[in-house]
Design a protein around this nucleic acid. Sequence first.
DNA 1: GTGAAAGCGCTAACAT
DNA 2: ATGTTAGCGCTTTCAC
Lengths: 360, 360
Amino acid sequence: MPAVSSILPLNPAAPASAADVALAAGVSVATVSRVLNGIPGKASAATVERVRRIAADLAYRPGRAGGALRQGRSRLVAVLAPNLANPAMAAIAASIEVALRAQQQVMVLCDTHEDPAIQDEMLLEMRAQRVHATIMLGAVASPQLARLCAAGERILFVNRAGPQAAALGFVGIDNRAAGRAVAELLLTRDMPVWGVICASPGSSAVRARVAGLRARLHEAGRTLPPDRIIERADADHALAGQLGIARLLAEGVAPRGALFCTSDLVAYGAARALRETTLADLAIVGFDDNPLNDLLAPWLSSVRIPYAEFGPAIARALAGSDAVGSDVLLDFRLVLRGRLAVPSASKAGLCPDPQRGEPL
Amino acid sequence: MPAVSSILPLNPAAPASAADVALAAGVSVATVSRVLNGIPGKASAATVERVRRIAADLAYRPGRAGGALRQGRSRLVAVLAPNLANPAMAAIAASIEVALRAQQQVMVLCDTHEDPAIQDEMLLEMRAQRVHATIMLGAVASPQLARLCAAGERILFVNRAGPQAAALGFVGIDNRAAGRAVAELLLTRDMPVWGVICASPGSSAVRARVAGLRARLHEAGRTLPPDRIIERADADHALAGQLGIARLLAEGVAPRGALFCTSDLVAYGAARALRETTLADLAIVGFDDNPLNDLLAPWLSSVRIPYAEFGPAIARALAGSDAVGSDVLLDFRLVLRGRLAVPSASKAGLCPDPQRGEPL
DNA sequence: GTGAAAGCGCTAACAT
DNA sequence: ATGTTAGCGCTTTCAC
């Protein structure tokens, strides 16, 4: 039995371990660990140099399972989103992923589908993964969420506020102020609000947006009648928009002035329904400001939520765990585009409507 | 020193461990593990019952670090996408996430930004995480990718083929056939191809799409001149579309017939540029068929890639690791919508263009 | 059918 | 400056 075989790894394809590096460098695994983790003043320059070189030669990278087990924490950060099909969620997730990577962390992304049971299951699984933190990108109320928040788990709320103060606070925009800002604009232009379509009405963010709008209108003496506000709980926001328009039209008020939608997706659905069913000349205002709007929806004004800034803000909130529960409010911005004009001529077929498209 | 304290967990907030369950149930940790992993015929019905109940009471869920360390594999599945801002990528990711969850696995999502260096870094990190598999949603050629494939790592290619045969094979559509199908349609309608705009030209999928189109046209004696094919390497596909149109127009051929774009995003950019700069009456064909097309781009026909089916197909490929390298080709479908008609009247301001939007 | 014990790879406390 | 050692929580022989 040749002693050499104990030196070479049995399976050359298997990743090197700290022990392999230690053996090759003639030091202990502890030294390898210290050097590679950059603990200062704990190794001679020569040792550092040698260990670094050999680690590189062996393409060594510490297995994360060992570290996670030892430290009780993995480098995973969970992101629980209610609907990944929504481009806004994808945009935030993309921004978070970049920011986390800069901190040597890895994003786990889950879709709760706005379902409390699924969300609870995921919260428990992420706890079993000993994630470094859990980011609720639009939480829905659920038993485990309340329990874990109360137990002081590292949970951060984004966009929608949590059930109570969370350990890691909140990152988002001031939705109430955004609603007020839209009202302000419409008052300035003397545009009445024809209707409001509100999807995911359970969300604190959505409620704040509508509340802000109503409050400012009320202050100006233009109180919005409740029957002009349609609430739809459909998971598919675009569908909510289409159905919302049907409801608004059913009340017999001709579309005129402005339509307030609580997300861009709602606005897309609403515009689609308007084009199909009626003449209209409406300013439509959405929320999110999907980057595709400039290309595909020049008739949509929108409250731009600075999704690219979410990642860095969230990463900062996770890193600076000293300040507990500090809320970060990012700046929004009204992006004004055109009105949606569904011309009568288009109905009559006199004038081609490129939005609708000529038959192939 | 009260003996009781050794029974109660020191920190009630800390998750229960298998030892806690074993203690409470009066069995060994081995039994707990066996019962909860459902190893058959290894525990009496009474024991199973008791362990199950106590585990539930304590809200016990096995910490994943321990298991991963022991088994050399985590329950993580990595998804490396080139661009999460692309709704098509987000759609696939969403579908994968659901399918993985059904298999008790967890998705780690990363954005390579089409950068080989970033992709390599991520591949190594995922190996350190001992991921169960790595899914390359649009791989770019890179040294580690080639090395790991050769070493037999569990890598699955989606959409774009890998550098060589991968351990887990390929899932996607037959892009060449899709290109041919588009050509077939255009031939049937006797529509000449005005131009081709091709983003991410390094991608095997993109090349196959264009090759299929050209091959079928060539067979029909309508060979496509190379100067009508614009290749743009911009990471932002919409931008590629806009710039591609500029190049096509610069050659002085009036837009007429059909425009072939290798992704919907390219088509969005192209349409935008066409509306701004010229009269046009074009059939535009894209790839992906973003769900928003029905709402926002009724002038865009597209090859619908069945993204919802990707997740299940991928999950199957991961589970049935027996069949090595088996390729799964999913069915695509041509979705026909209208033409893009930029009317002369609209330029003259006689007829409102709802796509462009009236000023607010 | 069940328990005891080894060991996965890592880090941190303690020795030297 | 470096080595020794313990132990994180789990699964899996092996022995009974």
